[in-house]
C-alpha cells in the first residue's frame, strides 16, 4: 500500500500538566474523507493545531506526502497544500467576499511578480464560481464581517477550496449552521472531495453528518485514540458509545 497523504505517528502534546494528545496515530489516504470524533475536550482541535503547525508537538511525527512537517511553521505547511478551517470562523472582515476569495489563490503559484499584479480575471471567475458553489454568490460584494456566522463558515470553506489544497482539515463544518442547510453542506463536502479531488479530514459532532460523510472514522477520548474503523463499526462500538455518554 502506498504511503498515506497524511501520516500522524505517536503524537503527544501537553499543556502544562494537561495531556491533550497522548500517543495519537492516524493516517489519511489520498482522495478519501476521514472523520475525527470525540467528546468535548478530547483533544481533536489540539491535534489539528499540531498537524498544521500552530504549536510545537512534544513527541511523535507528522508526515505530509512523506515529508516531515512537525517542525515547520504554519505558512510553510499551508504552502505545501495542507490547509485548515477554524472552529470559530476566521475571514477578513473588512474585505468583500470576492476579495476574500481573490487573496486566497494558491500561494504555490505566487511569484514575486504576482505580488504587484492585478487580480487575474481567471481567478475572479473561479472565485465567483466557488462562491456560487457554496451559495454566497448574491453576497459576494458584501463585507465578510457583515455575514452571519453560518455564511462566514461557508465563505471560509470556499476560501479554502480556492487555495486548492491537497488536504483540507475542517473543524466542525456544520456547527452553527441552520439544520436545514446541513444536508447541503454534506453534499458540498462530498462534491469538493469527488469533483475537486480534495482529501478531507473532518472534526464533527453531528453524528448523522459524519457517519454519512466519512469513509473511515477515528474517535478520540481523553487525548487518546479510542477506536477507529468504518462508520458502521464505530456507531456500534461500545467504547465509543460509553465515551459519548460519559460512562468512564
Amino acid at each position: 500500500m502506498a504511503e498515506a497523504l497524511l501520516e500522524v505517528t505517536n503524537v503527544s502534546k501537553s499543556f502544562g500538566g494537561v495531556i491533550a494528545n497522548d500517543d495519537v496515530s492516524l493516517s489519511v489516504p489520498e482522495g478519501r474523507i476521514v472523520g475525527l470524533i470525540g467528546p468535548n475536550g478530547s483533544g481533536k482541535t489540539t491535534l489539528f493545531n499540531s498537524i498544521v503547525g500552530f504549536h510545537p508537538i512534544d513527541s511523535g511525527s507528522v508526515k505530509f506526502e512523506g515529508r516531515e512537517v512537525s517542525r515547520m511553521r504554519v505558512p510553510q505547511i499551508a504552502r505545501l497544500g495542507l490547509l485548515r478551517t477554524f472552529q470559530q470562523t476566521r475571514v477578513y472582515g473588512r474585505m468583500t467576499c470576492v476579495q476574500n476569495m481573490q487573496i486566497s489563490t494558491p500561494p504555490r503559484e505566487e511569484g514575486l511578480r504576482d505580488m504587484f499584479a492585478k487580480a487575474r480575471s481567471g481567478a475572479t471567475e473561479k472565485a465567483e464560481a466557488l462562491l456560487e458553489f457554496v451559495g454566497l454568490y448574491q453576497k459576494r460584494l458584501l463585507f465578510a464581517g457583515d455575514l452571519s456566522f453560518g455564511q462566514q463558515k461557508l465563505l471560509e470553506f470556499a476560501m479554502a477550496l480556492m487555495n486548492e489544497p491537497k488536504l483540507l482539515l475542517l473543524d466542525e463544518p456544520t456547527a452553527g449552521i441552520n439544520p436545514t442547510l446541513i444536508n447541503g453542506i454534506i453534499d458540498r463536502l462530498k462534491r469538493a472531495n469527488a469533483d475537486l479531488g480534495v482529501t478531507l479530514l473532518i472534526i464533527e459532532h453531528n453524528m448523522r453528518a459524519i457517519m454519512n460523510l466519512a469513509e473511515h472514522i477515528y474517535c478520540l477520548a481523553h487525548g487518546q485514540l479510542l477506536a477507529q474503523g468504518p462508520p458502521a463499526e464505530i456507531k456500534d462500538n461500545q467504547r465509543v458509545i460509553d465515551a459519548y455518554l460519559g460512562a468512564h
Binding site: 498544521v52 504554519v74 499551508a78 477578513y92 500561494p107 464581517g145 479554502a160 487555495n163
Partner: peptide, 12 residues
C-alpha cells in the same frame, strides 16, 4: 484583518 488566518492560508 487577520494575520493568523493569512498565514494559515499560506500567504507570504
Amino acid at each position: 484583518d487577520d494575520e493568523d488566518k493569512a498565514e494559515a492560508m499560506g500567504l507570504h
